[in-house]
Write a protein that binds this DNA or RNA. Structure first.
Length: 666
RNA sequence: GGGCCCGUAGUCGAGCCAGGACCAAGACGUGGGCCUUCGGAGCCCAAAAUCGUGGGUUCGAAUCCCACCGGGCCCGCCA
């Protein structure tokens, strides 16, 4: 029983998808008929997966390799099978979006789309859908939490962390557009050592009001304090080593380390003389700075009122700086979660209790350890986690011998907390955390949260190098996100000044800011998240093809056309767009819904970058070859205008998901 | 020592999960054109790739499997 696909109504939200489905049912119909006539018992083959994009347009718009599978079974040549299939389909099926079905050597069945129909369907769909065109909603919406950035609030966000922020933010936008209910969270790691050092230094200085951008100011204090304390500590250790007849190797290593830190100290002293002098004096008065810092940690974990108040004050100051930076980059968080709250509310203690009861913990030197390897074997998790049989899982220390908690322990508690408010959790974190992320998952299995373990998604971010070098916060060899934005704005401004002097200065500045932030986001997003990226200024500041500016320029050109026209009319039909550049453009527009949903379901914003660039490219080609505003044939003019409007709509939608802001003029 | 990830033109980088017309998209750079009736941040053309290496599976491998090589990262009572 063959399906007459001609009776299928095209799905107006997904033009190319409708064509694809028509091809699928046509193939199905052909296959069923073949099954009947051949008399052979043919298996149920996965028709859908045989449909693929042909390498070039001479092979049509979709092609099936089904005949190769059948040829194997039927012991015939693929081309013969393909020919029979194509003939059968032509006979049986009424075609709507399909124009032709042909068998081609060595055995493909090629489907050519009816471009006249597709043009009509696509342009009408875009017009009807407007800013919602292409944003196909998922059939299975999930409450999803995306945690990203979560930078230590002790120094400014650097460009490496910014990669994390940009991907995290874009994934949230993508999933939300797909119809999921998304929350973004920033995890404030305020109970670690770094924050304690920061709070200690800030307190010594009597908590001055920042005279510059808050995170930069506190970051300065943190760096100086951390360095001075380290030097002090190393000096003490060296003295101790010398009196206890330690090995030469130990003494040499410690001396080397001390020299290094003294060098870093000298750098800091020349950069920030005032803070350095002050802190140096104050710290030298402290008989045991190391212990003072530990005390801050201990007291904070126990919610000592004075410590808590001052820690929260200084952390909030830094976070206000983070917010300023992130806002510039169009990154927004729905919630800011304090790690200290997890401790104070007893959630950490609770999960530690559950882990203890499980029997997978042991104590070592007074510390509580989790036997991860034992759990992996017991629950047979190797397959589930996708690790090889020889992967060694080291034990995980949950609680220090002094009774305080460690970061992974708190992370387990935090993840559990996340599942109280979301069904799916996505952690956007650097690849160096992959083992730690495994450990969290294993802890979930141990405590019986199996469903949650499966909905716990680790989204790894590959390292970002700076001009081929590893960044080093210590050595000051790093670039802050603010610096990158400043520099890019400056560069964009000079381009706008040069190219568009007629635009008023204030507006030029706003345009430059849009171009700059888009450029940075695009440069980061256009390379897959997991790959290690080399941050190169030339690439970020390149405003040519394959950049946000190139995409924006397509938008600007379309704006120019509309401005020139002034008044817009609806075309009567859409039957004149027959130029190859027009058809290529329509085809690209028709594919947006499929590209979007794949990008969202695969958590792959890079796909949308490629798409945006390709669409812009097609538009520039069209622009180059087509007259519009000054055309004498009004019907063709308005049809082309409809195409331009559709391109604008889709460009704007894609840009919105990627967090790019398009400027009408640039 | 164990493991995870990456390896595609001079450079950057899609395709790999779901093998098919791959003598491999696109970009930067290089060489040559279009000095612009809607803005040249553009368009057109050309040269440029042992798909890290070697085996295997298959009618068919950049794609799957195995081994090896190169690079990054992890294996803390740091985060």
């Amino acid at each position: 029983m063959a399906l007459a696909t001609g009776q299928m109504k095209p799905d107006h939200s997904n033009p190319f998808g409708s064509f694809r489905r028509e091809c699928e049912s046509a193939l199905n119909a052909g296959y069923l008929s073949l099954k009947k006539t051949s008399g052979l018992s043919l298996p149920n083959l996965d028709i859908v997966s045989t449909l693929e994009d042909p390498p070039n347009p001479t092979f049509g718009h979709l092609a099936s390799s089904l005949s190769f599978e059948l040829a194997k079974i039927q012991k015939r040549k693929p081309i013969e099978v393909a020919t029979t299939l194509a003939e059968t389909i032509r006979k049986l099926v009424k075609l709507d979006l399909i124009e032709s079905v042909e068998a081609t050597e060595p055995g493909y069945v090629n489907f050519r789309a009816n471009l006249a129909r597709l043009t009509e369907v696509t342009l009408k769909s875009v017009e009807r859908g407007g800013s919602e065109y292409g944003l196909l909603k998922t059939p299975t919406p999930e409450k999803t939490m995306v945690e990203h950035t979560s930078a230590n609030p002790a120094r400014p966000i650097h460009i490496g962390t910014a990669k994390n922020s940009i991907f995290g933010d874009t994934i949230a936008r993508l999933l939300s557009a797909r119809g999921h209910v998304v929350q973004t969270h920033f995890y404030i790691d305020d109970t670690g050592r770094q924050c304690a050092i920061m709070a200690y230094g800030y307190k010594l200085l009597n908590e001055p009001v920042p005279k510059e951008k808050p995170d930069h100011y506190i970051g300065k204090i943190y760096s100086v304090t951390a360095t001075l304390v380290e030097i002090e500590e190393l000096k003490n250790r060296l003295a101790l080593l010398k009196t206890t007849n330690a090995s030469d190797a130990d003494i040499v290593a410690t001396t080397k380390s001390l020299d290094e830190w003294v060098g870093i100290g000298a750098d800091l002293q020349s950069k920030y003389p005032a803070e350095f002098e002050q802190l140096s004096k104050l710290i030298s008065k402290d008989p045991d700075p190391e212990d003072s810092i530990s005390e801050v940690i201990r007291k904070y974990e126990k919610k000592d009122p004075e410590t808590s108040a001052s820690m929260r004050r200084v952390t909030r100051i830094v976070l206000s700086g983070f917010e300023q930076t992130l806002q510039r980059a169009r990154i927004h968080f729905d919630h800011w979660d304090w790690e200290s709250d997890l401790l104070w509310s007893g959630q950490v203690a609770q999960i530690v209790g559950q882990l203890k009861e499980s029997g997978f913990t042991f104590t070592k030197g007074g510390a509580l350890e989790l036997d991860v390897a034992k759990a992996v074997e017991k629950f047979g998790l190797r397959d589930k986690l996708g690790v090889s049989p020889t992967f060694e899982f080291p034990p995980l220390t949950l609680i220090r011998s002094d009774g305080t908690s460690l970061y992974p322990t708190r992370d387990i508690a935090y993840t559990l907390h996340k599942f109280r408010i979301a069904e799916r959790v996505i952690n956007v974190i650097g690849t160096e955390q992959s083992l730690a992320q495994f450990q969290v998952k294993v802890a979930f299995w141990i405590t019986g949260y199996r469903k949650e373990a499966e909905k716990f998604i680790y989204f790894p971010i590959g390292h970002l190098m700076l001009e081929g070098q590893r960044m080093s916060a210590r050595r000051g060899r790093y670039v802050t996100f603010d610096q990158v934005l400043d520099e890019t704005v400056l560069r964009a401004k000079s381009e706008v000044d040069r190219r568009s002097p007629s635009i008023p200065g204030e507006i030029r500045q706003r345009i430059a800011e849009r171009i700059a932030i888009s450029a940075v986001r695009y440069a980061i997003l256009s390379v897959e998240a997991i790959k290690s990226t080399n941050f190169v200024w030339d690439k970020v500041l390149n405003f040519e093809t394959n950049s946000a500016a190139f995409i924006n320029y397509a938008y600007t050109r379309s704006s120019g056309i509309l401005r020139k026209l002034g008044r817009i009319e609806q075309p009567k039909t859409l039957n004149l767009l027959k130029e190859p550049v027009e058809q290529a453009l329509v085809l690209e527009l028709s594919k947006f819904p499929e590209t979007f949903s794949k990008a969202a379901d695969d958590l792959n914003p890079t796909l949308l970058c490629l798409y945006a660039n390709l669409l812009a490219q097609r538009f520039h080609e069209f622009y180059e070859k087509s007259d519009i505003s000054h055309m004498s044939n009004p019907e063709l003019k308005w049809q082309r205008v409809a195409l331009v409007l559709a391109v604008r709509t889709v460009l704007k939608t894609v840009a919105g998901i990627l967090g790019l802001e398009l400027a009408e003029r640039m």
